[in-house]
Design a protein around this nucleic acid. Structure first.
Lengths: 224, 224
DNA sequence: GACTGGCTAGAGTATATACTCTAATAATAC
DNA sequence: GTATTATTAGAGTATATACTCTAGCCAGTC
């Protein structure tokens, strides 16, 4: 594997494990047993590494959210979208953690991320439309659908942050992809009131599989 | 005003403006025209300043979310809760930005914040209960109510982050409290499907007042 | 006036961090 | 082979940051 690719891979790994803020370029080089000079031969700066990682992330999610227009949507499709998106979130989980700082440090990233968000919102919107066409959820006016899509985006992209703050101990290390996917339960919660009678039980059953076993909720929960 | 209080105030101001990560203790001291030594006489470290600010924030929100149990809830009450909470978010807006890093650096803060979150979730839950008792929304099983409350929390606490990423330019400076309050529209969107026929139009009208005029959604709206 | 204790100044320190520079080595072209 | 280019090492730099240390000021008290 080329050094350049190794740098990207190691950076992603370290960022995910420790958070971007806690990983320096020297750490990355040390982790790979290469010199800082070598790293800076391949990347002009730290931002450039992050930008490359973003491009990969973007590509992955764009691929996941490519919605086929030649056929109706099924409940399985919907679940597959959710699973895929949460897989993506997991693989690039450092990204949403320090998002605001990252965007402040790189205008190019800010611009790209903004367009990326808009594409995702459109895709979510389209999924809702097709779910309605397929009779899985009730059709809703465009206004409402757009606002719903935005809420889905907010829940999806911030569920992980919530989980980490809800953990009692240092949580960066011990978060698992299974816990993360409990966010699917929360997303489906948004759909619940719109489900058609024909699909209601079906989707509720699917949703049930992701019911959160919330992290040490018990510890201070004795009141109530 | 005592130096200690001035430090807290100036820190909050600078954190909100520039983000905690971009504000050093030396900046704070310089801003107040006091010496670093003076600052460190009053606070053992930066974390302690942040913790003090959190305590204020916590107190404020706890006060806002104190739900009177001696009377029924009105739609106005609900709106007042929303307005208040978003005011609080605005005043301490730096906090949710670097939340994860802050919690990682201070176990005491992590623990307190976790309990704070649980209290807020319970309050939201109770608000939904009382809205149902008042006939404003349909009553829902506890499970669903809890999941809904969590979604409300996610939307409330992350709406600001979304706004900032949606902005095209450097956004930390030019975000306004009015834009922030458009998050109320998103929260009410979550309630829409549960509104009773008696209150539906009423609440939809209230919601309409907060409809987002989303920041340069179409590429570059001339800012002026 | 002398003493005390809270408060403050400001120079200074240890460490970290992003990044540079030069020279050496490996790979490739001719 | 030689010349050229791509890659790498590793010491080094400029700057920043959280925090310390010492000495002095000032308000109140005896």
């Amino acid at each position: 594997m080329k050094t350049r690719d190794k740098i990207i891979l190691a950076s992603l790994e370290l960022f995910n494990e420790r958070g971007e803020r806690n990983v320096t370029t020297n750490h990355i080089a040390a982790h790979l047993a290469i010199s800082p000079g070598n790293l800076y031969y391949h990347f002009r700066n730290k931002s450039d590494i992050i930008y490359e990682i973003f491009l990969e992330y973007e590509k992955l999610v764009d691929y996941y959210l490519d919605i086929p227009e030649d056929r109706a949507m099924t409940a399985e499709d919907m679940m597959f979208y959710l699973e895929s998106v949460f897989d993506g979130l997991w693989s690039y989980r450092f990204f949403h953690r320090d998002l605001e700082y990252l965007l402040d440090s790189d205008p190019r990233l800010r611009q790209d991320y903004r367009e990326f968000t808009n594409r995702c919102l459109k895709a979510i919107n389209r999924i809702f439309e097709k779910l309605a066409e397929a009779g899985i959820i009730e059709a809703q006016p465009e206004d409402l659908r757009t606002a719903m899509s935005l809420n889905v985006w907010l829940v999806v992209t911030n569920w992980m942050a919530f989980l980490k703050t809800a953990h009692a101990e240092e949580t960066y290390a011990n978060l698992t992809i299974n816990e993360l996917k409990q966010g699917i339960y929360q997303v489906l919660t948004l759909e619940v009131p719109y489900l058609t009678s024909g699909y209601r039980d079906r989707v509720l059953a699917l949703r049930e599989k992701y019911r959160p076993t919330l992290p040490d909720r018990n510890e201070s929960e004795t009141s109530g």
